[in-house]
Design a protein around this nucleic acid. Sequence first.
DNA 1: GCTAAAATCACCCTTTTTGGGTGATCCTTC
DNA 2: GAAGGATCACCCAAAAAGGGTGATTTTAGC
Lengths: 208, 208
Amino acid sequence: MNQHVRIVLIEDDDILRMGYESLLTDVEDFAVVNSYASYDLARKYLEADQPDVILLDIQMPGTNGLQALPFIKKALPQTHIIILTVFDSPELVFEALTMGAGGYLTKNSSAAKIIDAVREVSTGGGAMSTNVARIVMHSFQKNLNSPLTKRETEILDRIANGQTKPQIANDLFIDQETVRSHVKNIYIKLDVNSKAEAIKTAKEKRFI
Amino acid sequence: MNQHVRIVLIEDDDILRMGYESLLTDVEDFAVVNSYASYDLARKYLEADQPDVILLDIQMPGTNGLQALPFIKKALPQTHIIILTVFDSPELVFEALTMGAGGYLTKNSSAAKIIDAVREVSTGGGAMSTNVARIVMHSFQKNLNSPLTKRETEILDRIANGQTKPQIANDLFIDQETVRSHVKNIYIKLDVNSKAEAIKTAKEKRFI
DNA sequence: GCTAAAATCACCCTTTTTGGGTGATCCTTC
DNA sequence: GAAGGATCACCCAAAAAGGGTGATTTTAGC
């Protein structure tokens, strides 16, 4: 039995949409079951299409791709969604990923990359173009020149997780006064005088 | 003038090391300037090697790759580091990325993928194998079935950033009592009775 | 081995924040 | 028009935070 990967395209540019369709149709085990110029047009047919993978543009008339994402996820929880767009700002990327996109490709991606990506996400993998990967990886990067000591970082991290000083003291098997002492030093080093400011500053400078 | 990408390999398996060396040397504009069986052996030569890219194994005798990462970063801030390993647990991946790795490949990666990755990171891009991408993307994913309302999520998010109720009230132009009201509802929905627990539970269940 | 930095604890103090209970009003949004 | 969401009010006591000042003990780098 033929186990085709069922693909749906949602892309408002006619030329591009036809291009992708032709590209993906030519792949042996892929099947483009339908393609639409917008989510609003696709909406009522998607469930019948039963796609394994949706290639989704962001910029579209009506509901845009990012707005559509949660609705698609709710209607078709098993479907993997690849964002395919010209935009690659950190905000859009993170927005897409938190909403459950399984891939994020920019439109300068080669045909081979797009085919690879579809295959990957259809089996539960992840896919992103290199510029998106750079953004994502950069978001993890900690500042390696933190003025905070190990202990101070540990404590500030726990504060950022909502722990109170007594709780922290208890967890680390040290006295509350010691925790207080560390916190005071943290405040001095970060030039702040409250938890909120400390967390804000530390996150901005990637100390935690 | 020939602008070669200067590559250093740190990999304890002799066969693999030679394999990578031969693979990368054959690429026109790549130059493998040196290869070592461990970081401890590489250590004192690295600065002289002036690599643009280091392919770094994790499992090694002596200092392992992840432990070596911060030292390499400190000594050679401009050098891009690609972790090349058989391990792909979330913990190791995040550890490597926070320590400043520019790429994370698993050893089942094809020759072409490895060459691509070196080229990418050498120009400041990011690179990761699909299984790593899956892990990373999954870490961003929010729970789309949160029991919390928009407002409640907003407020819990601010609490997780260290803001106090008065501050939140002020920022959102609502009364402290309203914030308290929301917080109470959050506590009931999450079945907790403190900030710390609420943040912990919400993060675990990816509500924030 | 010396020295500086880091980690530890102590006691002074006041102000702010928290959490629980109970109830009410006003929007929206199906 | 009913329900969930968002808003505000007032009761209360306990907990936590923040500032100041100082001291001791480890730990780590030269």
